[in-house]
Design a protein around this nucleic acid. Sequence first.
DNA 1: CATGAATGAGAATTCATTCAT
DNA 2: AATGAATGAATTCTCATTCAT
Lengths: 216, 216, 216, 216
Amino acid sequence: MPNKKDPKQNILDTSIALIAKKGFSAVGVREIAKKSKVNISMISYYFGGKTGILKAIIETYFTLVGDILKDIIDVDLPAETELKKVITGLVKLINEKENLCRVALLEMPLDVPEIANYKLEMVKRNMRFVGKKLEDGFNISDKTKHVIIGHAFISLVYSNFIFGKLRRKEFNIIFDDKFFETYTDIITTIFLHGVYGINDVCCPDKRNQKNKNNKK
Amino acid sequence: MPNKKDPKQNILDTSIALIAKKGFSAVGVREIAKKSKVNISMISYYFGGKTGILKAIIETYFTLVGDILKDIIDVDLPAETELKKVITGLVKLINEKENLCRVALLEMPLDVPEIANYKLEMVKRNMRFVGKKLEDGFNISDKTKHVIIGHAFISLVYSNFIFGKLRRKEFNIIFDDKFFETYTDIITTIFLHGVYGINDVCCPDKRNQKNKNNKK
Amino acid sequence: MPNKKDPKQNILDTSIALIAKKGFSAVGVREIAKKSKVNISMISYYFGGKTGILKAIIETYFTLVGDILKDIIDVDLPAETELKKVITGLVKLINEKENLCRVALLEMPLDVPEIANYKLEMVKRNMRFVGKKLEDGFNISDKTKHVIIGHAFISLVYSNFIFGKLRRKEFNIIFDDKFFETYTDIITTIFLHGVYGINDVCCPDKRNQKNKNNKK
Amino acid sequence: MPNKKDPKQNILDTSIALIAKKGFSAVGVREIAKKSKVNISMISYYFGGKTGILKAIIETYFTLVGDILKDIIDVDLPAETELKKVITGLVKLINEKENLCRVALLEMPLDVPEIANYKLEMVKRNMRFVGKKLEDGFNISDKTKHVIIGHAFISLVYSNFIFGKLRRKEFNIIFDDKFFETYTDIITTIFLHGVYGINDVCCPDKRNQKNKNNKK
DNA sequence: CATGAATGAGAATTCATTCAT
DNA sequence: AATGAATGAATTCTCATTCAT
C-alpha cells in the first residue's frame, strides 16, 4: 500500500479513480486533495497544476503500453502470434488498471496542445505497430485500410471497457480471470478472422496448414 | 440554416459541437449561450439547466438509432443482411451527426441517475437486437458471449469516431462518401468473419452458397 | 372563494401567505404567479412591480386598523373601556388576518422610502391614539413615556404572533376563539395594571370606585 | 477596532448590521463582502455559505442570553428581583447589540430546518425560565397562561426595538443610558403590575410589606 | 517541504421586468 | 386584456492557484 508512502503516487491514484468516474473537468483539485489526504497546494507543487495530473496519467499509460509492445516485438514471432500476445497484454493491462486506461484514452485533451500532441504521438507509435503487422502478415498495404483496421483493433480490445462499464450491474457476469480469458479469445478471434476476411482468405488456422499464397 | 429560426435547436446544435470537442463538464453555459447568440437564461428556460441539454442530446440520439433499427427490423431479412443494413445505417448516422453520437455515447452521466438510467435503458434495448441476431443467425447463445460480442459490435461500428478524431489532421485521408463506403465494408467484414470464426465456421459467404468464387 | 373571481385579490392573498412565511425578499414573483395561477406579467400589470404588492398589503392593513380605531373613537367612552375595545378589535383582526398583519408590521421597507414613509405615517397615527389615551385617562404626559408605553402596547397586543408562530407545533394549545378570549383578557389586564403601576396606583377597578387623585 | 484583525468577526459584524437593516434575504453576499472588505469567497470559506452567517448570529445571541440567565439564576433570589435583573440584563444586551438581537429574533428561518430547530430550542429554554418564575413567584400554573405571558414578557422587553426603529428619527428622544434606565423601569413595572393584576392582586410593593397570601 | 488562508475569476441559476404578439 | 418568450443583471457558490508563514 504505497498510499501512505508516496504522496505523489497517492494523488495520482486518487485522481485516476475520480477522473475515470466523473471526467477530468468534473473533478476538482479540492476533491482530489481531500481524498488523497494531502494539502491542496501539493497538487500544484507536485504536478504544476491540474492539467499536470492528466499529463502524468497519460504518460504512465503509454509507458506501460510501450513496455508491452517492446517485450513482444523484441522477440521475433509470426504476425498472428504477436497480435494475440499484444491483445492478451493489453487486456491484462486494462484488467489491472482499468481506470488508468479509461482516463488516458477517453479524456479529451482540453485544448491543451501539449497533452494533445503527446497523446497523438503515442497513438501514432502504437498504430505503427498494427500497421506493420497488417502489411507484413496480412498483405494489407492500403493506408486507408491501415487506419480503419488500426482503429478497429484498438476499439475491439477496449470494447468491454468503453461500453461495458455502464452495464456492469445489469449482468450477473463476474469479471474474473476466466471472463478476461474468454474476452481475450473472442476479441482475438474476431480480429484475426475479420482481417483474413478482408483478404478473402478463409480460416486462419487452416491457412497456416495449407500454406496458401499469402505473399507479402 | 435554422439557427436564426429556432433558438432551442440552435442551443442544442452549439452544445453538441462544444461538448463533443471539450467534454460536458468543460463546456460552460456562458460559452454555449454566447456561441448560440442567445441569452444565458434561455438555457435554463428551455432545458431547465445544463444537464437538461445533455439529456436532450441523448434522447435525440437514441430516437434516431431507434428509427434505424425499427425500419430494418420491420422488414424480415436474413441475419447477415440485417446486420449489414444496421451497420450501414449507423455509419451513415455517425457520418451525418458525428458529434451528436460522440456526446450521446461517450459522455459520462455525471452521477445524474436520471440520465444514466435512460442511457442504460437505451443501450440495453439496442443490445437486445444484436443478441437476437447472434442467437438466431449465428447460433451463439451464451450470455457472456452476447455481452462481449455486443460491445465488440458497437465498438467496431464507432471505432473510427472514437479513436480517429485525434488523428484526422495527420492523414491525408478524406472522409468522403467513398471512405465511409470502404469503412462500412471493412467493419461489416470484420464483424461477420469474426463472429463466424467464433463458431469455427469459415467463410460466411461460402457457407451460404457452398460454392466458390466469393469475390467481395 | 374569490380566487377565481378577482385575479388581483388572488395575487394579493397568495403574496400575503408567501411573504408571511418566507419574507418579502425571499419570495419571487414567479412563485406568486404560479401559485396564483396567473401570468407573471400580471404582477407588474396590476401592482406596477413586486414592491407594489408590499405597498398594497400595508395599505390594506392600515385601512383595517384605521376602521377599528374609528369605530371605537367615534363613540365617546372612558379610556379603559376604549383601550379594551381596541385590544379586542386588534386581536380579532390578527386572529382573522394573521399573515396580513405579520407582513404589514414586520417586513422591512427595503429602502423604498415610499413604503417606509407610508408605514411610518400609519404607525404615528395609531400611536397618537394611545398617546391621547395615556394623557387623558392615565395622566401620563411625558413624551418619552408615551413612546415607550405605546410600543409596549402594540408589542403586547402582537406578542403571540411575533413570538408564538415558531412554537405553535410545540404546544397542544388550540388557537380557537376561547384562546383568543383568554389572550385578550390577559393582555388587557397586563397593560392596564401595568400602566396603573407606572402611576403607583393600585387596582384599576378599585381606582374607579375610590376615585383617587392619581398624580404623576 | 477588530475589523482589520479578524476577518471572520468582521464579516459577522457587517452582516448583522446589513441584515438588521434590510432582512436576510435582501442582503447579498456580494454586499457583505464588499462592506467587510474581504473577498466574496471568504464567506463560504468561513461560514460554509450565506445561511451559515445567520446560524452564527443566532448562536451568538443565544449564547449571550444564556450567559445572562445563568448568572442570575445561579444566585438564589426572589422571583421579582430575578425578573427585574433579567429584564435589566436583556435591555442592556439589546442596547449594546441591538442589531444582533433584531436579527436573531426576527429573521425568519427561511425554511432551513437546522436553523429553525436550533432557534426553537433556544426559545424554549429561555421560556422555561419565565414559566418557572410564574409558577414559583406568582402562582400561575396554567400552561396556556405561561405561553401567553411568556411571549408578552419577551415582547415587552423587546418592544422598543421591534417597533421603535422605524420612528427613531421622528422623535428627539436620545437613546442614552438614561433612556434605557427609564425603559427598564417602565417595562419591569408594566410586567410585574400586569402579572399581579392577573392574580387580582394589587400593588406588588405593598404586597411584600403586607405579606399577603396571594392565591390565584 | 508543507500548510491553509486568501484571491479573483468563473460556475450555474434565478431574478423582476419588458415587449411583441 | 392577456400571454409567455426573451432579457440582462444579480444571485450564491466553487474553481484552480498563490503566497506568507
